[in-house]
Amino acid sequence: MPARTAVTGRSQEPRRRFAEELRLLRTQRGESLRQLGKALGWDASLFGKLESGRTLGSPEVVEALAQHYGVGDLLLTLWELAVGDPTQFKEQYRRYMTLEQEAVSLWHYAMSAPPGLLQTAGYAREALASGFKGEELDQQVEARIGRRKLLAGDDAPPFRVILSEAVLRTRLRDPQEWRKQLEYLAEGAERSNITLQVLPFSAGPHGLMNTAVKFLRLLDGRTVAYTENDDRGELVEENRRVEELQRRYDAMRDLALLPAESRKFIIRMLEEVSCEPST
C-alpha cells in the first residue's frame, strides 16, 4: 500500500493546524491583525498570539472568530482538538493523557493538590510557575485547564475523587484565587457525574499516604493506574499492581467522609478564607 500523502499540505499537529487555519482565514479576508482586533473588540496582540500558536485563547474568542469568518463549527472543532492534544504536555505524561481522553470512568486520590481536572486557571498558574515561565507557562496552564472539558457535557464519564485534607489546607498565596478554587471544588461536588470525598487528617495512616494515584477504566474493559509523587510519575498497566493499588484505594475510601459531608467540609474551609485581595 502506498504511503498516505497529505491532502491539504497543512500541519497534522492540532495546535499548529489551528494557528494555520486562523492565519489563512484572516489573509483570505485581506484583514490586518489591527483590523481584526477592532472588528471583534479584542486587542490585536491576542490574535497575533493565536496565529503564532503561543496561545489557544478561550472558546468565547474562537466562537467570535467563527462568526466573523462564517465558518460554522470548523474553528471550535480545531480548537477542541488542540486543547486536548497530548503533545502539549511533558513527554512522560503524554501516554496517560491520551488514555485519559478514552476513559469511560476515572478515580483519583489527590494527596496535596486538587486534581488537574478540577483546578482553576489561577491555581494551575501558581502550581506550574516554578517549572515554567512566560509563554510556556501560558501554554501549560491552557493545556491543564483544557482537560476540564472531559468532565463537561451530557456524555461526560463518571469521576470519583478523594481529596486529602492537606489539599484543602495548602492555600494559594492569593486569597481571591484560593476562594475561586474552593468554590470550584464545591460546585464540582454537586455535579451528577462527580463524586467528591474528603479524607480528613483524623482518618489516620492509610496505604496511599505518600502516593497520589489515578485509575482509568478504558473502553476495552481494562483498568490502568497512574501513580505520582514529587519526583516522578508512572503509568501502571500490569493487572496485579493495578489491583493492589485499587485495594488500597478502596480501603482509604472507606475512611473518607461521605460526599454530602465532604461538600460541607469544603464550605467550612471557604468560610475561613479572607475576602480581601492579596497585597
Score class of each variant (00 low, 15 high):
residue 3 A to N: 08
residue 8 T to E: 13
residue 10 R to Q: 10
residue 13 E to L: 13
residue 13 E to I: 15
residue 15 R to P: 07
residue 16 R to S: 15
residue 18 F to T: 04
residue 19 A to I: 04
residue 21 E to V: 11
residue 22 L to I: 09
residue 23 R to S: 09
residue 26 R to I: 03
residue 34 R to L: 03
residue 40 L to R: 00
residue 41 G to H: 04
residue 41 G to L: 05
residue 46 L to E: 00
residue 49 K to S: 09
residue 55 T to Y: 01
residue 60 E to R: 12
residue 60 E to A: 13
residue 61 V to H: 05
residue 61 V to R: 03
residue 63 E to Y: 14
residue 71 V to P: 06
residue 83 V to N: 02
residue 83 V to Q: 05
residue 85 D to V: 07
residue 85 D to Q: 05
residue 87 T to Q: 08
residue 89 F to K: 07
residue 95 R to M: 08
residue 96 Y to S: 01
residue 97 M to G: 03
residue 99 L to Q: 04
residue 100 E to T: 02
residue 102 E to S: 10
residue 104 V to A: 11
residue 112 S to C: 12
residue 113 A to D: 13
residue 116 G to P: 04
residue 116 G to E: 05
residue 118 L to T: 04
residue 120 T to I: 03
residue 121 A to F: 03
residue 122 G to I: 02
residue 123 Y to I: 05
residue 124 A to F: 05
residue 124 A to T: 07
residue 125 R to C: 11
residue 131 G to K: 09
residue 133 K to Q: 14
residue 134 G to M: 00
residue 135 E to S: 09
residue 140 Q to S: 07
residue 141 V to P: 02
residue 142 E to G: 11
residue 143 A to S: 11
residue 144 R to Y: 01
residue 145 I to A: 11
residue 146 G to F: 13
residue 147 R to N: 15
residue 149 K to F: 12
residue 152 A to N: 10
residue 153 G to H: 06
residue 155 D to Y: 08
residue 155 D to V: 14
residue 155 D to S: 13
residue 156 A to K: 14
residue 160 R to G: 12
residue 163 L to Y: 06
residue 170 T to F: 08
residue 173 R to T: 06
residue 176 Q to S: 12
residue 176 Q to M: 11
residue 179 R to K: 07
residue 180 K to W: 04
residue 183 E to T: 02
residue 185 L to K: 00
residue 187 E to D: 07
residue 189 A to Q: 08
residue 190 E to N: 06
residue 192 S to M: 15
residue 195 T to W: 01
residue 196 L to R: 14
residue 199 L to N: 01
residue 200 P to W: 06
residue 202 S to A: 13
residue 203 A to I: 08
residue 204 G to Q: 08
residue 205 P to C: 06
residue 207 G to Q: 00
residue 209 M to C: 09
residue 212 A to I: 01
residue 212 A to Y: 12
residue 213 V to Y: 02
residue 214 K to L: 15
residue 221 G to A: 02
residue 222 R to W: 04
residue 227 T to Q: 05
residue 230 D to E: 15
residue 233 G to M: 02
residue 235 L to S: 00
residue 237 E to M: 02
residue 241 R to M: 06
residue 243 E to G: 04
residue 246 Q to C: 07
residue 248 R to C: 13
residue 248 R to T: 14
residue 253 R to V: 06
residue 258 L to Y: 11
residue 263 R to K: 07
residue 267 I to W: 11
residue 270 L to Q: 03
residue 273 V to E: 09
residue 275 C to R: 13
residue 277 P to H: 11
